[in-house]
Simulated scan of single mutants.
Amino acid sequence: MAELEVTYDEAADAAYVYFTDPQDRVPSARMYACDPVDVDGVINLDFDEQGRLIGIEILAAGSKLPESLLRSAQHPDTESA
């Protein structure tokens, strides 16, 4: 099984889990927003043109995801500096 890529933007406190290989990335054709009041956060599901799930965005990720996952995630806001 391929490893999942996870990015985390600390300033926005948003994480993204990719279900596609970097060389196969396609733009999202449709986004389904989940606003689970019970967990006090927002999760967005991204789908491609064929209706396949290509990624998940997690807002308020610092309180929703394990700290170890966020530490090991790519941090695009600091990697270009």
Rank of each mutant, 00 (worst) to 15 (best):
T7S: 08
I43S: 10
T20Q: 15
N44R: 12
T78N: 05
V39H: 11
G62P: 12
A81S: 12
S72M: 03
A29Y: 08
A14R: 04
P36I: 13
L59S: 07
D35F: 00
S68F: 09
E57V: 08
F47R: 08
V17R: 07
I54Q: 04
D24Y: 05
T7I: 07
T7L: 04
L53A: 06
D13L: 03
P76N: 01
A2V: 12
A29Q: 13
A2C: 10
G41N: 09
R52Y: 15
L65S: 08
L4G: 00
H75E: 00
S68P: 14
E5I: 09
L69W: 04
D35E: 13
D46Y: 09
V37C: 13
I58C: 06
L70V: 03
A33Q: 14
P27F: 09
G62E: 02
E79T: 07
G51M: 06
G62S: 06
G55K: 03
E3F: 00
P36R: 15
A33F: 04
D40H: 14
E5R: 13
D77S: 12
V6E: 00
R25A: 11
R30A: 14
P27I: 04
S68C: 07
Y16V: 02
D21N: 12
D46P: 08
A60T: 12
R52A: 13
V42K: 15
V17Q: 07
Y18V: 03
A81D: 12
A15C: 01
A33E: 15
I58E: 05
L53N: 07
E3V: 08
L70E: 02
Y18H: 09
E67R: 09
V26T: 08
E57D: 13
P76Y: 01
M31Y: 11
L65Q: 08
M1W: 11
Y8L: 02
E67L: 11
M31V: 12
E57N: 10
D13C: 04
D38E: 14
Q50H: 14
A81K: 13
L69A: 08
G41M: 10
I58T: 06
E3S: 11
V17F: 03
F47P: 14
E57I: 08
E5G: 04
Q50V: 11
F47I: 02
D77M: 07
L59K: 11
S28G: 11
A60G: 15
S72N: 06
V42Q: 14
N44M: 04
T78P: 04
Y16H: 06
A61W: 00
D38C: 11
Y32I: 14
V39Q: 13
G51D: 06
M1Q: 11
A73H: 01
I58D: 05
E3A: 10
Y16P: 01
A29L: 10
A81R: 14
P22Q: 01
Q74W: 01
